[in-house]
Simulated assay, not measured.
Amino acid sequence: MNTLRQTIFSTTLTLAFALWCMSASFFTAFAQGGSHRAPSCTAGTASGTYGYHMEGQILGVGPFLVNGLFTHYPDGTSDANVASVVNGQLIEGPGTGGTWTIKSDCTGTGKFRAAALNLDVTYNFIATDGGEQIELLNTNPGVLLHGVGRRIAKAGKAPNCNNGTLVGAYGYRLGGSLPNVPAFIIAGTFTHAVDDSYKGLWTGTDTFNAMGQYLPRVNTGTYTINNNCRGVGFYTDNLGNKINYVMTVVDGGDTIYIMGNEPGISASGIGYRIK
């Protein structure tokens, strides 16, 4: 009987000790997992070429949209290749003579000359996702403009896209304004393909909401993507509309930043690959 009691007592102590060790390990892991490192960024964190889009307005003028590329070089210089829509007017041109700087807390500032806009563009940014994403805020007086950039090429590397990059099905949404239509939104799907000559083709359906009036659409179009991951597209719908647009491809083709470039139209949105 004494031997049995000793065995039970010994087993109980062993189990109690094991449970204590497990609890100690859990709380240690929890404490370590709950701690956060302070941000730590350098010029290398936010260097490279980014595809980006921004939306907002110029006070007293109208909607202001941006779609294109910018490159942060490790030496603190930068340039850009941008299409902008200002109150329905498409304006394209390079951004030159740029500079940028980033702090260790991953916030930064930048500027470049946009001659087509007759503007020295200034902006603040935050590098997130290890520099793969940059949150953007324009800081020019009288301009309300914000957006996001996704890295498409590391520093010293060139973007590399073609029509095949976009083959597949996408869900998308966009919105803006049209002549005599102050507000509209669209959501739907499209499928990209290439023909035997590698020309980009697409078909899709969506719902067009103009000031609360819903219209289903069937769309057929073409697209071309350049090796710098910028491109253009065109489509017709079953309502008789013919629409041109520009786009920038990021995330290896998984995401498309879209902006209309028809006169009088201010429209932008985003498409995501349906995986």
Rank of each mutant, 00 (worst) to 15 (best):
Y214E: 11
T191W: 00
G204Q: 06
V218S: 12
A183T: 11
G131D: 14
P141L: 12
P179T: 05
A169T: 15
L137T: 15
T205P: 01
L174M: 06
P159M: 06
I152D: 10
N140R: 01
L201T: 12
T165F: 03
T203L: 08
Y170V: 05
Q213L: 15
G188K: 09
T207K: 02
F190T: 11
L215C: 00
L174S: 00
G131S: 06
L145Q: 09
L144A: 10
G212E: 12
L215W: 01
Y214N: 08
G204C: 04
K199L: 14
R217T: 15
L137I: 14
Y198A: 11
Q133V: 12
N180G: 02
F208M: 07
A210M: 08
F208Q: 06
V181R: 02
T189I: 07
G175V: 07
V167L: 05
L145H: 09
F208R: 09
L144G: 01
G212D: 12
K154P: 00
E132D: 15
N160T: 10
T165G: 03
D206R: 01
P182R: 11
T207I: 14
G171N: 07
H192Q: 11
V148L: 14
L145N: 09
L145E: 11
H146V: 15
A169H: 03
S197I: 14
L144Y: 03
A210R: 09
I186V: 15
Y172K: 07
G175R: 03
P182F: 02
R150E: 09
L174E: 04
E135D: 15
P141H: 09
V143S: 08
S197V: 15
T191E: 05
L215M: 09
A193Y: 05
I186W: 07
I152Y: 04
G164E: 10
T205G: 06
G175K: 03
L201P: 00
T165K: 01
R173I: 04
E132H: 13
R173D: 08
D195Q: 01
D195Y: 00
N162D: 15
T207P: 00
G149Y: 07
R150Q: 09
Y198M: 12
E135R: 03
S177E: 12
I152F: 05
I185D: 08
V194D: 00
N180W: 03
N162F: 01
K199T: 14
N138Y: 04
G176A: 04
T207G: 01
F184I: 15
L174V: 00
N160Q: 10
N209Y: 09
A153G: 04
L137E: 10
N209P: 07
R151P: 00
V181F: 07
G149D: 12
A187L: 01
A187R: 06
F184A: 09
D195G: 01
C161V: 10
G188R: 07
A193H: 02
T165W: 01
R150Y: 12
Y170Q: 02
A183P: 00
F208N: 10
W202T: 13
A193Q: 11
N219E: 08
T220N: 13
L178Y: 08
N140M: 03
N140T: 05
G131Y: 10
K199Y: 13
S197R: 14
F190A: 10
